[in-house]
Design a binder for these strands. Structure first.
Length: 473
RNA sequence: GGGGCCGUAGGGUAGCCUGGUGAUCCUCUCGGCUUUGGGAGCCGGUGACCCGAGUUCAAAUCUCGGCGGCCCCA
């Protein structure tokens, strides 16, 4: 059993998802996939970090999955953006429903009618909640596990309500900081980009997105933050009474992250051997492999058990299986186990273990007496920094600063083009003839991209800022 | 939105054009012997022609429809 090379990303992704037991892709409905237990453990570890970040400022809630047609259709722009991909429930048993029910494509129209009831006066604000739910979209393009789904199983969506535009805008900045913390934790490099007008969330004043770059040079949107202004508040009559006795429409934000964060985690860090996981989100963090020879089993097993006992605060396993050691190495590398110890008769005699990290091929000896929690956490930290650095280097190979529309067109099949662009809509739209999508303008420049924010628009020459264009998932 | 290709054991494949053999090979899995510092070896076993209709003496193979997957172009 061996994976296709990651050079052939599409094939590699499909295989690793299945053989590393993230998702079972064999469910007989297009765009729906099954979480294997191992994949679900990764999901749980990743989402518990996301929860930890959200819980600092939000309350977790749950709203129904079904939305009456009358509410879903209220906000004109919003429904236009989703109407072609809504699943409808039309019958209860064999009785046609008076009002059709939509399976939520996103939850604004489920939540905001209730916000109208929850928000009465200025003391009720700001209101900040989030939920982690499934959502449904009838995707017509080809679907991909964790990336393009008909059922998004793990949509973390936050919704906030504020007094005015400025306060909501302040919160947008905070939301961006939350998401940065989350992706830094996963060692996933990202670009924070303001979407062009024609690509913002339907009903939003503006949209800021997190994009990362996949190994084939296409970008993956892994988070969005929307300023909704008072667009939805006016539709759903979310008003509050101010201290002066006047009633004002509230301003809102919403922002979301889906299981695409796990697609990014797998794709950005993985290699030809399989998954490479940051220590904190690895379902198995440490594996101990005994190397047994006839007559010497006892000393080796004793040493192994000693290590396992010392490290019991981690998710550690002792692989006592019948396979030969080499087969075990490949097996656990596929699963992305960050730290491995091997102990054979020679090592047991010397009181050492042979350690190695998933992201490096080097092996080194460590005295069993020196192994403790602090040492492991040190390793985990170093590994995260190394993962981030090597991910960034690989991504930089897929990013190029281009100086003309022609150069952009030549490059876009390879990766992301970066350039200065003015805010004239025609300039931006003309660039999409290159075959990519205009991601928008950098909200902030990543440290790893070196380019002045101000410059001349590569289309018309007038004053512009740094923008990016790429083929997207 | 438009076009093309494909569906054979748990996974990957040969056979299909030109209809007829016990449906090929690898892997996985199960039992046995043996082995163990980077995917060991031998023996034996389980397991498949996507669904439906049609053509035919006979369909994995030809035709149509459905479902599912992949790729390219806009």
């Amino acid at each position: 059993m061996s994976l296709p090379s990651k050079e052939n990303f599409s094939e590699w992704y499909h295989e690793v998802i299945q053989t590393a037991e993230i998702m079972d892709v064999r469910y007989p409905v297009k765009g729906l996939y099954v979480w294997f237990p191992f994949g679900f453990k990764i999901r749980q570890l990743v989402y518990s970090k996301l929860r930890e970040v959200m819980d600092r400022e939000h309350d977790e809630v749950y709203f129904p999955a079904l939305i009456p047609e009358t509410e879903l259709g209220k906000e004109g722009e919003h429904i236009k953006g989703f109407e072609d991909e809504v699943y409808w429930i039309t019958h209860g048993g064999s009785t046609p429903l008076d009002v059709k029910l939509a399976l939520r494509p996103t939850s604004e129209t489920a939540i905001y009618p209730m916000f109208k009831l929850w928000v009465r006066n200025h003391a009720d604000l700001p209101l900040k909640v989030y939920q982690i739910v499934n959502t449904f979209r009838y995707e017509t393009k080809h679907t991909r596990p964790l990336i393009r789904l008909r059922e998004i199983t793990s949509f973390k969506e936050a919704h906030t309500v504020h007094k005015n535009f400025e306060e909501a805008e302040e919160h947008v900045k905070k939301a961006i900081e939350f998401y940065k913390e989350f992706y830094d934790f996963l060692a996933i490099p990202y670009m924070v980009i303001r979407r062009p007008e024609w690509d913002k969330f339907p009903g939003a004043a503006y949209t800021i997105a997190f994009d990362t770059v996949m190994p084939d040079g296409r970008t993956l949107q892994i988070g969005t933050v929307h300023h909704l202004a008072d667009n939805f508040a006016k539709t759903f009559e979310i008003k509050y009474e101010a201290p002066n006795g006047e009633h004002y429409y509230a301003h809102q934000t919403c922002y979301g992250i889906s299981e695409r964060c796990i697609a990014a985690l797998i794709s950005i860090h993985g290699d030809d051997q399989g998954l490479v996981l940051p220590f904190e989100v690895a379902p198995i963090q440490i594996v101990v492999i005994p190397i047994l020879y006839k007559g010497k089993e006892e000393a080796v097993m004793d040493a192994c058990k000693k290590i396992v006992d010392k490290l019991k605060s981690f998710r550690v396993i002792l692989d006592e299986g019948e396979e030969r050691p080499g087969a075990k190495y490949y097996k656990w590398e596929l699963k992305g186990v960050p730290v491995r110890f091997e102990i054979g008769p020679r090592d047991a005699e010397k009181g050492v273990a042979v350690a190695s990290f998933r992201d490096e091929k080097k092996k080194f000896e460590v005295s069993i007496d020196e192994i403790n929690d602090d040492l492991i956490w040190q390793w985990a930290q170093i590994m995260r920094e190394r993962l981030f650095a090597s991910a960034t280097n690989r991504i930089l190979e897929k990013i190029k600063i281009v100086n003309s529309p022609d150069e952009l067109k030549d490059w876009v099949r390879n990766g992301v083009g970066i350039f200065h662009l003015c805010n004239n809509e025609d300039c931006g739209l003309s660039l999409e003839e290159s075959g990519g999508s205009l991601l928008g303008w950098f909200e902030e420049m990543p440290e790893w991209i070196n380019l002045d924010n101000e410059g001349e628009c590569i289309v018309c020459g007038s004053k512009g800022k740094v923008a990016a264009l790429a083929r997207t998932y």
